[in-house]
């Protein structure tokens, strides 16, 4: 089968899987509504319990799973391509860490309790801080090493400040709330969260999605890419700000969900012939599949216990990553 046909098949399969998992996410839950009823209730304008459950609880949860997964997969693929480093992931630029810090500060100060949107807005503000600092440290034409180093510095500082907030938290409940929030979850999100995150994510996706061809050229190194007409300043701007907008919004509404942005591009890279431009769409769909599947799994595994999504992705993701490393070692030796 030719590369083009295989790519088309892969995208079709990923779309089908995403659609299946999205409907599963809509229909699996403690309310135990039958499949047909639940889908009908989505479009009903009656204000009964079923319609309310579907429209106010399940739909935003499924939509956020889709959007956040796509964001993590896409930005992971872009950052790995841009930095030419298979270990790059959305958290690398310090955006997840500072967004978390913003959210934690809003819980710590009690702002989150006083005003529902304070938390996601504070998280977005945190993401803005990260991107400004990283961009300023690396310079408009910064090389990838500077960006990685700046991101690590920002992440570490934000982590330290988050620990400080926990350390000084006024009471154990606030500390517990902070801890739970940081684990990452899609439980009890509303359509307000969807509408808050959507514009940032769409803007971020547009920026990241425009990078396919430049990322292909960057396969041959930044100087060769520049000689092929790639504007490196523009690429850096789009990669950094696109990640900040989309991952910042994702972290703002769901907390930090690890490993998806790292592992998904890895798994899909060989399936798209390693071409960075082809990895973008595939990885976005793959990320959506993984987050939707994980969010269905947390409801099935421990229905009463509110198992956190970020915990599950890390528990499954880390051993899987270890297996990938093991496989790479076998191939190398």
């Amino acid at each position: 089968m030719s590369g083009d046909a295989r790519y088309a098949l892969l995208i079709t399969l990923l779309c089908a899987a995403t659609l299946t998992l999205f409907s599963l996410s809509l229909t699996v839950g403690p309310a135990g509504i039958a499949f047909a009823d639940s889908i009908m209730a989505l479009f009903s304008d009656k204000a009964d319990g079923v319609a309310l459950t579907m429209q106010e609880i399940r739909l935003p949860r499924a939509l956020l799973g889709l959007m956040i997964g796509a964001t993590l997969g896409l930005s992971g693929a872009v950052l790995q391509g841009y930095l030419r480093n298979p270990l790059a992931e959305p958290g690398l630029l310090g955006i997840s860490a500072t967004a978390s810090l913003g959210a934690v500060l809003s819980i710590y100060t009690g702002l989150a309790a006083a005003f529902a949107l304070a938390l996601p807005l504070a998280a977005l503000a945190g993401a803005v801080v990260a991107v400004v600092v990283v961009q300023a440290m690396a310079g408009a034409r910064g090389n990838s090493l500077l960006i990685i180093l700046a991101g690590i510095a920002v992440s570490s500082f934000a982590g330290a400040m988050t620990s400080l907030a926990l350390n000084l938290s006024p009471n154990p409940f606030a500390a517990l709330e902070i801890m739970f929030w940081m684990l990452g979850s899609l439980t009890d999100r509303s359509m307000t969260h969807v509408w808050l995150a959507a514009p940032f994510m769409l803007a971020g996706w547009a920026m990241l999605g425009a990078l396919g061809r430049p990322l292909d050229a960057l396969t041959l190194g930044s100087e060769t890419a520049a000689s092929m007409g790639v504007d490196l300043k523009r690429v850096q701007f789009l990669a950094v700000f696109g990640t900040a907008a989309s991952v910042g919004a994702a972290t703002a509404v769901a907390g930090a969900i690890g490993f998806v942005g790292l592992v998904v591009p890895h798994i899909l890279r060989p399936l798209v012939g390693a071409k960075p431009s082809r990895l973008l769409l595939a990885s976005a769909l793959g990320g959506a599949c993984v987050v939707l599947a994980a969010d269905v799994a947390v409801r099935l595994i421990a229905p009463g216990r509110d198992l956190k999504l970020g915990v599950l992705t890390a528990i499954v993701g880390a051993p899987f990553f270890l297996w990938l490393v093991f496989r790479a070692r076998r191939r190398l030796t």
Partner: peptide
């Protein structure tokens, strides 16, 4: 001059032989 326009006038074969991803020869 824009990078793209320059790229139509001059090509560059770099000293470093960097190929970051496992792509087929014809793709390169």
């Amino acid at each position: 001059m824009k990078a793209r326009r320059r790229a139509l006038k001059v090509a560059y074969l770099a000293q470093e032989r960097e190929i970051a991803w496992a792509v087929p020869v014809e793709t390169v």
